[in-house]
Design a protein around this nucleic acid. Structure first.
Lengths: 368, 368
DNA sequence: ATCGTTACCGGGAACGATTGCGTAAAAAAA
DNA sequence: TTTTTTTACGCAATCGTTCCCGGTAACGAT
């Protein structure tokens, strides 16, 4: 009896208690071949005769053979999965970024393992260890607002783990990065406020060591300076926990309206969570937006349009950022020879002007 | 020379091009032991002398040994990862659920692979195949609004894949499930509208075959009936794509305000995406909320409070739902003997009353 | 001195797939 | 017909880990 004429139905029966996938060994046994032959037939090796190939291929197709990715991973010493660490996925910016990441990753046969730092350095470290212990092939990360110590990431990178940073990048680690032009985005937004008559503009920022904080504040300061306005240090407030705790934002905003000063007539919030947090606090304090205090800030929620008032926002191309980051990472992973020249892709942010930054009703004299 | 006195520093050097993890074999060689002994020492077997154990354990700790999860997976025929399919993670409800899922999963040494169906049946199927080919140990899923054919899921389940449904469940597949009391949630919300003077209440729903649609509409109809109001079929509109396409919501809402009828004085939206979508359309149409049309709906965004007007919402305990679903799944996965009795956990939703459903200004006669 | 017990440890076969190498048989060249 | 080449396949090692078998000491009991 020819091998192929055997019954094709002796696959693991559907009544098995536990799902047992068809293996290459099963095919070999069923067809009276060796596993090597089956493996080569499936990979379309030239060493296998057309007849045998057809036999194997047909059997595999009929019984829905799927190569075991775990065995492959062990053999090839790669897991075909990449790790992503963000502070939280419930944040629109990050969930959109993840969409972009998954888009590219899945198309290239990689799966994505997502972890959340929740703006905590400890959790970030924990996630990092977890992910590396799950032997990921590469890492995409936007560091937490608490992170000051990058030694672990640095060491990981030096030991050969491909890493791509996005949004909150780390200057001292040389690798691919994706950001928006934070300087320009905030500069333009600040100028927009100034043009609309605001003169006492405060900034609400994440912790100072964050790349986005530095770049965005630089844009803010430059815009003020270029328009003859003084940069006042007490008009810049930092939120060490990135607005994860509302009371932190509350303290920051209250600080702006502290004793003695009349408070800012506009606030620019330099992160998603801070923007909506700030609006919430302003409403709680009963300050009218934009009449008493204008508000503008980074955000990627499409709900900002429906807020009261509709919020002027700086929007990042989150989806695209995820796509770019993943392409860069896959390049690092799949490159034959080590890559030494790294790129930092800078995308453009978008300023969506709405009511929260409407022209200031001028009841006083024009600006000095 | 005693085995332990060897140098402990000949680990894979940090200058390796590619990160090479320490294996049990390396430890064995370095310590002059066999791999079996090292393995047993690490697992604290009684067969190993305390001295040898200490030797191995110290060496492992010093050189930061991490067992290779892939090799373990291959040996134990389990991947220690679970798949999650939701329609989109950018949806607050789902991202919060995922938080709950990850919380439990990570604490139990599982990792989570997330896939998005984007309310498309085809993508759901694709994800399903992808996840199973990545040999996940179990699946948590909320089916897409398009899904009418559950045969693939059913077959998968019958072949032994543990599955837990949440939110959008499938009645015909017998397994653990987590939902909220959709009937009661909508019933109460509808009664709330009636109490506030609304009489012509429309419902905006996902596609009709979805479990949540059926349950929620039942609550809606019962509330109307119990209060002597007639259920009008043209006051119920369906969105086959779950509001992923805004024009779909627009058509549905426009249908409500069609020719001849004066339109509803209140709308209850039976899904997150529909709620905000509906508000957007109402605003575009220039209809005042709640004066002309009240709005109430499912939502889990904390931004609804800041909307114009602040939205009355039915909020689901998303985080808890994720936790419960994961606990159930782990129970299915790790149970020694097959589980035949399944539970459907029903949690309570929360009605947060805000301005969008405020009492109707009564200019007419009280109700008949 | 011999046997049985206990304590400790190693050999080697799995898990599922790939791959270098060896080698039959068949085909081609001599 | 003999030699060489080609074709087509199998054997066995490998990846990192576990675990079933052994096996060998030491020790007390007989």
């Amino acid at each position: 009896m020819a091998p192929g004429s055997q019954e094709l139905v002796n696959l693991p029966s559907a009544c098995n208690m536990k799902f047992e996938a068809l293996t290459i060994k099963d095919i070999a046994k069923a067809l009276g071949l060796s596993t090597s032959t089956v493996s080569r037939a499936l990979r379309d090796s030239y060493e296998i005769s057309p007849e045998t190939k057809k036999l194997v291929l047909d059997y595999a197709a009929l019984n829905n053979y799927q190569p075991n990715p775990i065995a492959l991973s062990l053999k090839e010493r790669r897991s075909r999965s990449i790790g992503v660490i963000v502070c939280e996925i419930a944040n629109s910016f990050f969930s959109q970024t993840i969409n972009g990441i998954e888009n590219i990753a899945y198309n290239n046969g990689y799966n994505v393992i997502i972890a959340q730092s929740r703006e905590s350095f400890d959790r970030e470290l924990l996630n990092l260890q977890y992910l590396t212990s799950r032997s990921i092939d590469g890492l995409i990360i936007s560091v937490s607002t608490e992170t000051k110590d990058f030694s672990y990431l640095k060491e990981l990178n030096q030991r050969g783990m491909p890493i791509v940073f996005f949004d909150r990048i780390v200057d001292e680690i040389d690798t691919h990065k994706v950001i928006v032009d934070n300087y320009k985005g905030v500069y333009d937004a600040t100028v927009h406020l100034i043009k609309n008559g605001y003169r006492n503009i405060a900034a609400l920022a994440n912790s100072g060591q964050l790349s986005i904080t530095r770049e965005r504040l630089a844009g803010y300061k430059a815009a003020l300076a270029d328009n003859g306005l003084e940069v006042q240090d007490d008009m810049i407030r930092y939120c060490e926990h990135g607005g994860m705790i509302l009371s932190e934002v509350e303290n920051a905003v209250n600080g702006l309206f502290g004793k003695g000063n009349k408070g800012p007539d506009a606030i620019i919030a330099l992160a998603d969570k801070l923007t909506t947090g700030c609006l919430r606090i302003l409403k709680e304090k009963g300050r009218k937006v934009p009449e008493e205090t204008a508000l503008i800030g980074f955000s990627n929620t499409d709900l900002t349009e429906l807020l009261d008032p509709p919020l002027t926002i700086i929007k990042q191309p989150a989806f695209e950022m995820g796509e770019v980051a993943t392409s860069q990472l896959l390049q690092l992973i799949e490159s034959k020879r080590p890559i030494t020249r790294f790129e930092t892709r800078v995308l453009e942010s978008e300023l969506l002007i709405r009511k929260s930054s409407a022209s200031k009703p001028r009841k006083a004299k024009p600006v000095s």
